[in-house]
Amino acid sequence: MNKWFKNRDFIGGSILLIFSVWFYFTAQTIPKGNVSGMPPSFFPSFLAIILGILSFIVVIKGIKQILAGSQLKIERKNHKNVFLLFLLLIAYLFAFQYLGFIVTTIIYLILVMLLLKAGKLVKIVPISIIITLAVYYIFGVGFKIPLP
């Protein structure tokens, strides 16, 4: 059973297939409105059907791969770091509305650089401050974008 779950075409295609079914039925709940011609639900339903067919092909491909014992070649990635980065970005999104751009960005940059092993704190902290202030002055002052 394990090789079924490890095949990305099979799993990914199935997820997309389920998604297209969901998309189709959600589209049917869109109110018709009073227009002559195609209702607002028409194009989403059309797309959902196409996606359904395409993802079905991918599922079949996945099954073929499993039966043939082959695998989709995908580069190994460090998902842990990407996940941590994602959490950091979400934290940034909330923090910068309260702490303001400068403070949040400096803290964010220091944390990301630590995560990417950019070097010692003595090096990272000044770099983070310089980048933040440069961005703040170029965008906020130079191009008059109101950063909080």
């Binding site: 869109i30 409105g33 227009v35 607002p40 989403p44």
Partner: peptide, 8 residues
């Protein structure tokens, strides 16, 4: 929707 203004 740009024709009927129905939210989708």
């Amino acid at each position: 929707d740009y024709v009927t203004s129905t939210p989708r």
